[in-house]
Design a protein around this nucleic acid. Sequence first.
RNA 1: GCGCCCUUAGCUCAGUUGGAUAGAGCAACUGCCUUCUAAGCAGUGGGUCGGAGGUUCGAAUCCUCCAGGGCGUACCA
Length: 544
Amino acid sequence: MTSEQYVIQQLQAFLKKHRIQDITISLQKPKEEQFGDCSTNLAMQLARHLHKKPLDIATEIQQSFRIDLRYISKVEIAGPGFLNFFVANQNLYEQLSHILKIGRQFGRSEQAAGKRAQIEFVSANPTGPLTIGHGRGAVLGDTIARLLQAIGYEVTREYYFNNAGRQMRVLGESVRLRYLELLGQNIEFPGDHYQGQYIIDIARTIYEEFGDRLQKETDLTLFKDRAEQSIFDDIKHTIKRLGFEFDVFFNERSLYEEGKIDAVVQGLREKGLIEEREGATWFLTSKLGFDQDRVFIKSSGEPTYRLPDTAYHVEKIKSGYDLIIDIFGADHIATYPDVLAAVRALGYDVDKIKVLINQFVTLTENGQKVKMSTRKANFITLDELMDEVGVDVTRYFFLMRNMNAHLNFDLSLARKQSDENPVFYIQYAHARIKSIMALAVSKELKWENKARPEMLKAEEEINLIKHLIEFPKAVEGSALNYEPHRLVNYLFDLATLFHKFYTVCRVITEDHEMTLARLNLIDATRIVIANGLELLGISAPEHM
RNA sequence: GCGCCCUUAGCUCAGUUGGAUAGAGCAACUGCCUUCUAAGCAGUGGGUCGGAGGUUCGAAUCCUCCAGGGCGUACCA
């Protein structure tokens, strides 16, 4: 049992004794050390119910609280009626050895065991390399997947794409024109076609294979297919470099082939939510409380994205996932309310679907904003970014901030000062520990299960232990809120506490007992940092 | 106009779901390497939490209004 669990147990006993219900006990971690390790505002909450002064109630609770030195050393009343609890060191030592005992498992839990989650992200159509903008979604998605796995979910990473439609025709035509250029034709390349160098590269491979045999070819299929294949190969390579792979690539086309699209239209039509008008097929969103109707099928006969997206989400729900996560960029904000409305109108429970929107990455270079556009090719690719700063910095950068805040990515800073990136601060703590442990091993020191943890009494040591044992809560909070940056902040704070400890407390000394105790402490720290970085997909280096 | 998001130190951002004296990193300044890695540590300065009301024991956090910025608001995805 942790100290917190003991506190809650005692407080619940108090509530039961006084027959008080409908109160949820909340424990906070005070910012100030003098206010203890955890505190509760229960007395203030109860003041209204019991018609007594908060301070009087606090005193009652304090008097009924049974101090057990295995968990809590003292209880104090402070301020307007806070009850502050101080953790007994004995409990810290027990939890420290618990960390050492379970090692890599520390931080993982089974609370979502048996549940399945699907997370769809990136989902860029194969019209060009992944950009820094996609990178944010990619890293967030993979990390949230890792976090969900850490609390027991079985997770499927899914990439949804569409290789049909107008943009793919433009892509094919772009390649064809570049191919004709290679044949020496004078081509005026349209401004609204894909401008990137990669188009020329693809055209060249076609030229090398076919020579001029495609000169009269007007069917775009071959150009389109070659481009798609080449671009997808690149995308998969980039993803792999980032440190993960998708389990499923879901082609939108399969929804048509299996009749899912028609089923959606039919289903909504039966509900009176479909209408033909001006040659197009409309989804009557206005009947569902929205301000305007939306086109489902254009007068050209091609569906808009809303229709297949709806069919796709119906399929997700039918697959029986307990949790369905979509990660979109901010430019898709307007799309999901209609899609979810359609899914709901078809009678499905959309509560399992969580739509996470990540705000844009604003690129600045030399103080100037860089506008990114795949078509204009003035983007920085994710690969180029990783070439510049490495995978660890790339991932850390995308994870360190709340996803619904804009990410200001200063390219010149990322290039020039990449060794000042905070990720190195965390990795450095790990490398320092490995270095000490290597020295200990060379001195044939064996610390496992032989140390006396009660030797660890210095403020730096106690603070470090207290933070280490918060790790499972940090993982859980990060996972349940889909907020990787919380874990990043936790690890940064942990590194700070370790560096402080390192400066003040020498690990390997003449004092054998103390040496073993501290080796245990840094070993536990190493475990937590490594486990944490693993969840972020960032390496934990032995040397730096 | 409407919808979603953002506004906290000079800059970039945290702030554990309403708690006690609002934090960190950069940038500036001052110290600390004969000892396990100085990619580190200690310290100084820096704030009307965009503004105004409201809710209550208590608000950066919740509600309303206003201002500024971003993204949408397509028979593009």
